[in-house]
Simulated scan of single mutants.
Amino acid sequence: MVSLTVGCSSTKNAQNSKDKVLQPKEVMSVMQKVADWQIADIREHNIVSDDWTYGALYTGLLAYGNLSGDKKYDDFLIDIGNKLDWNTGKHRFMADDYCVGQMYSILYSKYKEPKMLAKFIPQADSIIANPHTESLEFKGDVYNREWAWCDALFMAPPALAYLSTATHNIKYLNIANKLWWKTTNFLYDTAEHLYFRDSRYFDKKEANGAKVFWSRGNGWVMGGLVRMLDNMPANYPNRAKYETLFKQMAKKVASLITSDGTWHASLLDPASFPSKETSGSGFYCYALTWGIRHGLLPYKEYFPVVEKSWDALVASVHPDGKLGFVQEIGAAPGKTTYDDTQVYGVGAFLLAGTELYLLETHK
């Protein structure tokens, strides 16, 4: 009897702890801790970057900063923009190098300072002018001109879509739409409802014989997908097609969450990389929560997945605010440890937390 009583008390305490993690005040608190740790680390190392890794971080800082109402986050990002002279990376047609355009467009929509888009607009116009007729087979330097790898669908299409919103010019959304489906038609596995990272993985197999589908790679896609929808008019011709794709992926992804509350680096062979992984998981938590909040996913079916994943993400935050278990930069599944962190993981964490806060406060 004593053992049973202790067990029930322990279960109740665990549930109460999980419920507390989901409370809006707690969500805001852990986001602030993670955001402030990351900014302090950047300042300590004097980093000013237009790199895709930081471009992903900036999206999360923008979302959290807007939610918190604390202008220090916008001020930090505006300072970065000024130091970069509001320019993107040196490879003008490579998706990674204009991921930072998302930040520029979002800040322009808020502050209306022409310098924020003065260099990105002509770059986007030159992207539109390109023929985009090459094969997406991953060889040579095709990645410098085409979206030939699935990660690109977070880096580039949202940058152009946010530019479309900022300038009220549909042509930027139209080119993003055109190239989104070119990449999807090439890399999306219609049987598994997941994306291959690039053509080199079409015939590769995991240790258990399953196809190789990288967690963060598909997380990039789902994050990019909802950010496209965020900038797409309700009557946009292909909107229903995006929503169908989103629902297909969401159903598959939700079915693959592991017992520890994360999606391991290899989606179809999680045992081959048994540690938690928080960057792909952060993007899935973000996208699924967004889907619930926008009425595309049923709450009863998907919120338990969100709840489980957010609890695991919060448990991966160090006491000082550092986010752990982030797979290092790569192109395929890999191992993680408690001390592994990267800025894009923080971006995903902040996007997920922002959506969760909005969902929990607008029920």
Rank of each mutant, 00 (worst) to 15 (best):
G101Q: 02
I127M: 12
S49I: 09
L351T: 00
N238T: 14
K20Q: 15
D70M: 05
H45R: 15
L187C: 08
F186T: 15
P304C: 05
V305E: 00
S109Y: 01
D74H: 14
A148E: 09
H318E: 09
E192C: 04
S259V: 13
L107R: 08
K25S: 14
C99W: 03
R293L: 09
L163V: 02
P304I: 09
Y162H: 14
G65D: 07
L107G: 08
G219Q: 04
L22P: 05
S215H: 01
E206Y: 02
E243H: 10
L350Y: 06
Y299P: 00
A315F: 02
D189C: 11
Q327E: 13
A312I: 08
S105I: 12
P304Y: 04
Q248E: 14
S135C: 02
P304D: 06
L62K: 02
A152F: 07
T278V: 02
L323C: 05
F202I: 11
V346N: 01
Y302K: 10
Y111Q: 07
T244V: 15
N144I: 00
M228S: 03
W263T: 02
L117Q: 06
K112S: 11
W147G: 01
A148T: 14
Y188M: 02
I329K: 12
Q327P: 11
A348I: 05
M249T: 12
W86G: 01
K178D: 10
T336I: 12
F186C: 07
E360F: 00
S255C: 09
N87T: 14
I80F: 06
V253S: 00
N218M: 07
S10K: 14
A287P: 06
Y58H: 12
L358V: 06
I127T: 05
G353C: 11
Q38A: 05
A118D: 14
G7D: 10
G334L: 13
G324F: 04
S316Q: 08
K182F: 11
V2E: 13
G334H: 11
L173C: 10
D51E: 13
K115I: 13
M28Y: 07
T336N: 11
A331L: 13
L288P: 04
G69A: 09
L225P: 01
W290S: 02
W52L: 08
A148Q: 05
K363Y: 08
V317G: 01
N16I: 08
W290Q: 05
L358S: 10
V30K: 05
G69F: 09
K205C: 06
W147K: 00
D269A: 15
A271K: 15
M28R: 13
P298N: 13
S105G: 10
I106D: 08
L179Q: 15
M28A: 08
G282R: 10
F93I: 00
S255Y: 07
T258C: 10
V6M: 11
Y108K: 04
M103L: 15
V221C: 04
K308T: 07
T183M: 04
K276D: 00
T336D: 10
Q38F: 00
S259I: 09
H362C: 06
I170R: 12
W180A: 03
K83N: 12
E360H: 06
H264A: 01
A191V: 13
N231R: 01
K276T: 00
T262H: 03
A234F: 10
G334I: 05
G209P: 06
W52H: 11
M28L: 15
A352I: 09
P158K: 03
M222D: 03
P114S: 08
M28K: 14
R145H: 14
L160G: 07
T262N: 03
I39C: 02
A265D: 14
S316K: 06
I80R: 09
